[in-house]
Amino acid sequence: MKAGTNLEKVLESGRFAVTAEAGPPKGTSAAVMQRKAEALRHCCDAANVTDNQTAIVRMSSLAGCVIMKQGGVDPVMQIVCRDRNRIAIQSDVLGAVALGIGNILCLSGDHQMFGNHPTAKNVFDIDSIQLIQALKAMRDEQKFLCGDDISGEVPLFIGAVANPYADPFEFRVARLAKKVKAGAEFIQTQAVYDIDKFAKWMEMVVERGLDKQTHILAGVIPIKSAGMARYMRDYVSGVTVPDELVTRMEQAQDTKVEGAKVAVEIIEQVKEIPGIHGVHIMAVGWEDIVPEIVKQAGLLPRPVL
């Protein structure tokens, strides 16, 4: 065990993992995070707390993680490279470990032009792969990036993301391989809608043996309405939403029921793809639906390890 977190235990035991996502509020209310912890506690093995996702200022991931943990959920702290340099990031990692957070997910971060502070200066001192490397060295060698010693253990379970729908498609497996080589022990993918393309990517992943070196969790974003389906298809970069799915949502009598049904179908399909070790359900702002989706997908109860 690297960190002994619940997520690590579930994945290392060979069970099919379920993670969820909890977006912190655009405000100071701990109660908002407490409610999300309550909704997610029994239906997932860990929950990601996003780091100012889409470059919109929210409560910090670190604070959100602490509240999730107090609420009985194993938190996954997301760290993006957009807002902090190597000094600030390493400092936050020390703080996170001190507060009992063991899972960290490394991302580049959405560009600030998509958020609510488009005139901000970005940082990108290090990139997501270098961040994975840095965390690994902090844990395995107890060294900072500069080579200085860290006092105390840094038990971390290190994660990264992968987007099989971005280009160049052939490079996407190589990029995953780089992340695994850098030290990523679990991978959460971009939302899967186009199953065929995802299966093709996974075939290449398995061919390289990467599924044996890391745990890959397929991303699922439940769609709430026809408008959301259209928006995801037309404006969210790096996400492929097939037209048939948009039509299906447009024709649905109750779009929320239909959206949950679609999510369950996706989970059932990705579960059958060789090399997939779990699902990551990103129902940001719709966390309440997660228990229902996990239940319908036959993934309850969650293991207690």
């Binding site: 970005n122 990139d127 971005a166 280009d167 970069s237």
Partner: peptide
């Protein structure tokens, strides 16, 4: 690259373009 990345394209590279603008080629592509 809009993020000055050194290890290849981020997940926002689609059809050879940067996520930041359809007029900007993805440097890593």
């Amino acid at each position: 690259c809009a993020k000055s990345l050194l290890n290849g394209p981020c997940g926002g590279s689609v059809d050879g373009k940067c996520e930041v603008s359809p007029d900007t080629p993805c440097a890593w592509q």
